[in-house]
């Protein structure tokens, strides 16, 4: 073969040449491209169908008085009442849990990016473990929280719910903040350190400020998950038909209320479930819009 001249080989290849486009090739591409279009249309379509049906069902059963009234006794037995306590309960729970998770989560993210960068192996191991708990379903936190409460002999309460949800959203929060902090250039922290800052000052002055928009988005992401999740709090917050007034009160959250309403035998109560689902979806959509807006808006205040 090696004796053959380049011209011979080129002529050989030329002889074998097929046309660049054949009907079969084109057909295959068109076939798969249509499938792809169908897949994307399907996704958008399903999203539309879900939103429209939730809104349609919800708006037709919604009344403003639902937002103003507590459930009162016998709510699930069709004795009237609203979902004010569930909404307020959800907000209390999610806000406190998010705050708690933020404090711990920010510390963890800073720990990894400011302190542990000196030990890459340790850092990799930490990120690996974080990835693992990131995927743990919320029902497991619910079960764990419940068994912990039994173990400690504590009764169901808003506080127990806050702690459980905080544990559940903690990995989500840490990963989101970590993703942003990873992008801070090493040069920035080196220059701050060389100016005589201690590492803790570096973290709070530079990293927190630099990553502020990212942290806000992470907080909103975690908050959204906290508001929407039912499985983790199903059995740790207890049930209550009144707006909670202390951390040790029982509390009902909005998703749990929806679950109980739709399982009620009374049609009127089920209708309220649709309205409540509409309210919950609206809250989630507002949070997601807000986080988009904020991450866009604050982008320009970064130093680099």
């Amino acid at each position: 073969m090696e004796q053959r001249s380049l011209a011979d080989v080129r002529a050989l290849v030329k002889r074998h040449e097929k046309p660049a486009r054949t009907g079969r090739k084109l057909g295959e591409e068109i076939f798969f491209r249509s499938l792809m279009n169908i897949a994307s249309v399907l996704i958008v379509g399903v999203m539309g169908v879900i939103l429209i049906s939730i809104f349609y069902k919800g708006i037709s059963t919604f009344s403003w008085s639902m937002l103003a009234e507590d459930m009162g006794s016998g709510f699930y037995l069709n004795r009237g009442g609203g979902i004010k306590n569930a909404i307020v309960g959800s907000l209390y729970l999610s806000l406190s849990a998010t705050l708690l998770a933020l404090v711990v989560g920010l510390a963890c993210a800073l720990c990894m990016n400011v302190y542990m960068v000196k030990f890459p192996k340790l850092l990799n191991a930490a990120r690996f473990l974080l990835d693992l708990i990131w995927g743990v379903p919320s029902i497991i936190y619910g079960a764990f929280g419940f068994s912990l409460m039994v173990f400690l002999g504590v009764k169901t309460s808003l506080l127990a719910g806050i702690i459980t949800v905080a544990l559940f959203i903690l990995p989500i929060m840490i990963r989101a903040i970590d993703e942003v902090m990873k992008t801070v250039p090493a040069g920035l922290s080196e220059s701050v350190l060389s100016m005589g800052s201690t590492r803790s000052e570096l973290s709070y002055k530079v990293y927190v400020r630099q990553c502020f928009p990212g942290i806000v988005t992470a907080v909103l992401l975690a908050f959204g998950r906290a508001v929407g999740d039912a499985a983790s709090v199903l059995y740790v917050t207890g049930e209550s038909s009144k707006t909670p007034t202390s951390l040790l009160d029982n509390a009902t959250t909005l998703p749990v209320a929806i679950y109980n309403q739709i399982n009620s035998p009374y049609a009127a109560t089920q209708d309220k479930a649709y309205a409540s689902a509409f309210v919950l979806t609206l809250i989630i959509l507002i949070i997601s819009l807000l986080s988009r807006y904020i991450s866009k808006r604050y982008q320009k205040y970064r130093i680099y």
């Binding site: 073969m1 090696e2 380049l6 290849v13 074998h16 040449e17």
Partner: peptide, 19 residues
């Protein structure tokens, strides 16, 4: 770009790798 049998293909691969 074209249809080759195994032997032709082997030959060509060798040729271009030698190139």
């Amino acid at each position: 770009r074209g249809k080759y049998n195994r032997a032709e293909l082997n030959d060509l691969v060798e040729y271009y790798l030698r190139q």
